[in-house]
Design a protein around this nucleic acid. Structure first.
Lengths: 157, 157
DNA sequence: TCAAATAGGACCTTTCAGGTCCCCTTTGAA
DNA sequence: TTCAAAGGGGACCTGAAAGGTCCTATTTGA
């Protein structure tokens, strides 16, 4: 199965938490230890996630005492693809995409080189319309995420 | 980046080769050693790929002397997603999809559980229209797989 | 001056994909 | 009848990458 790194998963959780706590652009900041507590993710891991998000410009870190993190954008304006890019790199299914040499056993005789492009594009396209807000919807009531009608259909299929 | 297993990649090459060699439903069979030679992929690896494809019913193995493999379907009738499923399992970005327990650090407090569904479905959807024939074009010179309207758009984008 | 908090690496451990090898079964042909 | 070619099914080993943890430096409010 495709694997998204766990850090990407944690990132969505943390971003959702930041939004819910009001750590939005111009708002309060939230500390890494606090977010660790709130999300149940180990503190060093949360710190690592936030560091990466900071380097990608998706959150803003405030140093010093009373420091913390806040979002740089509303989640609805943050495409999921940017988060994935920050943690997993460019969205592509194979290394064989743009003719990078030396990675493929069938280098010399491969008839498929470059042919995955349409697949990669289809996936990028599919992801382009999804924002973090769509995934990390802050619903106060947690419980079986009783799938919305749309989701139910998808699951059924 | 997303990673598709290399075996999946090899599988597409091998399937394309089978088609090109006439190892189609009702036709000749091709041996694993022969395919290894033709594709440049190591023989044990080709054998492994074919075994998996056979278990998935995507190729038919003929045992005994003069045995070999042939396709069970024309490549144009073989969705890429079936190949991916055979090698990489269900198409899903995270393990957290259907509430499998014990995999997630934030098990108890995760607010995102199940929320990846729309993402997964978007990807399944994107892949649903692509067949192996679209990827493993049988001949260097070949009439554009008229499937192209959609693909062309994606590529163009 | 101190304590709280981010910033940035370095490091270790574990997991798993990738690849190879071995042995069995089947079957056509000499 | 025998043999060799070929698929079938696992078992095994290895190397790389993900996942986590920890340490140290830097910043800054109280």
């Amino acid at each position: 199965m495709f694997r998204l790194s766990k850090l990407t998963d944690y990132a969505v959780v943390v971003l959702g938490r930041l939004a819910r706590e009001g750590a939005v652009p111009g708002g309060q900041v939230q500390t890494a230890p606090g977010l660790a507590l709130a999300t149940g993710i180990a503190e060093p891991t949360v710190a690592k996630v936030l560091k990466i998000l900071g380097q990608a410009g998706l959150v803003e870190g405030v140093r010093g005492a009373r420091g913390g993190y806040r979002l740089t954008r509303p989640l609805a304006a943050l495409p999921l693809s940017e988060v994935i890019f920050a943690f997993d790199g460019p969205i592509a299914l194979t290394a064989c995409v743009d003719g990078v040499a030396g990675l493929c056993e069938a280098e010399g005789v491969c008839q498929v080189r470059g042919r995955w492009d349409p697949v990669n594009d289809a996936i990028r396209n599919a992801l382009s319309g999804i924002t973090v807000a769509d995934i990390a919807a802050p619903h106060p009531v947690r419980q079986p995420v009783a799938a919305a009608p749309v989701l139910a259909q998808l699951v059924a299929e």
